[in-house]
Design a binder for these strands. Structure first.
Length: 292
DNA sequence: AATTTCTCCTGCAAGC
DNA sequence: TGCTTGCAGGAGAAAT
């Protein structure tokens, strides 16, 4: 499942399309696309029989030259340089691929045909992801300003300030993109394990020393995962734009390891649902809060 | 206002 | 072998 390291790996692997011109765009699944004027939450979540609006010419960068690739948290922006941008959420199973072959694949939803013959494809089996057509830089800034700071550079005092007034489990707060942008279920469990913090502890109980360990763990783990090209799980769902898998899954200490020994103390890792997400932790290293 | 629950969707694994 | 069932989960909307 793509989180910050996977999205950053996708961004880097897409760099070879900077400078290319988009000749034409094919929308195969309108529901994976949101253009200005679509209902809140995107066309796919509209109630009733809402007729999809046509996609305005140029909204998907057709005719434009790709100038920049940016990322904030788990969101990727492909910009044309004149302010128009494509904002891409990978959701659970979303992929952006550069292909030489024109052959369509199952779950291809949007295809950008470049003037040099390559194709950039948004493919998403589970369709939790999508592409947002943004008309100008203000639209992109509005979306990204609504998110917390990028997790790769979070500092301890900022993190603590953001958690201080929250009566949720720390796990829920870390998954909230308005608190911190980029952490999902894998890296939340990895960071909490490294920082020795129980996932059910109240966010407001995080003290300065906890925040110091947690912010440091988040930055260190995310950077290591970026360096490894992200986490490709056994199901193989994730790979970058060139099809390369990431190797960080071999270094997971908590995620997916319930029932296995803790890498730090050998005690068997346990698992339960916290904040509506399967969570794995070490009952010795990450001490439980009183009422759990 | 803050927090939790519901919902979307498909592929895969386990069980019979 | 082929069916059913359960599970995985990001994040917006709806409910509490």
């Amino acid at each position: 499942m793509p989180e910050l390291p996977e999205v950053e790996s996708v961004r880097r692997s897409l760099l070879p399309i900077v400078g290319a011109r988009v000749e034409r765009v094919a929308v195969r699944t309108r529901r994976s696309l949101v253009v200005p004027g679509d209902p809140p939450g995107g066309f796919s979540r509209a109630r009733g029989d809402v007729k999809p609006r046509p996609v305005p010419r140029g909204a998907l960068l057709d005719g434009a030259t790709i100038k920049r690739l940016d990322r904030h948290g788990k969101q990727l922006a492909i910009g044309s340089g004149d302010g128009r941008a494509l904002l891409i959420h990978l959701g659970m199973t979303g992929r952006v691929e550069i292909r030489d072959s024109p052959r369509a694949q199952t779950h291809d939803h949007v295809v950008w045909a470049l003037a040099d013959g390559r194709r950039v494809v948004f493919n998403d089996a589970r369709r939790f992801g999508g592409v947002w057509a943004l008309p100008d830089t203000a639209a992109l800034h509005a979306r990204w300003n609504a998110l917390g700071p990028d997790a790769l550079t979070i500092d301890a005092s900022d993190l603590r300030e953001r958690l201080r007034r929250s009566a949720r489990p720390i796990k829920a707060a870390l998954l909230d993109q308005a608190v911190l942008a980029g952490v999902g279920n894998i890296y939340a469990d990895e960071s909490l394990h490294a920082a020795r913090i129980h996932p059910a502890r109240l966010a407001s109980s995080i003290r300065a020393d906890d925040a110091e360990r947690l912010a440091g763990a988040i930055r260190r783990i995310l950077q290591a995962a970026v360096d490894a090209g992200g986490s490709t799980l056994r199901d193989g769902t994730y790979s970058d734009a060139s099809g390369a898998a990431g190797s960080y899954a071999t270094r997971h200490a908590a995620y997916g390891r319930a029932g296995e020994p803790c890498t730090r103390c050998d005690v068997t890792l346990v698992s339960d649902v916290i904040a509506q997400r399967t969570s794995v932790w070490c009952p010795r290293c990450q001490r439980a809060p009183r009422c759990v």
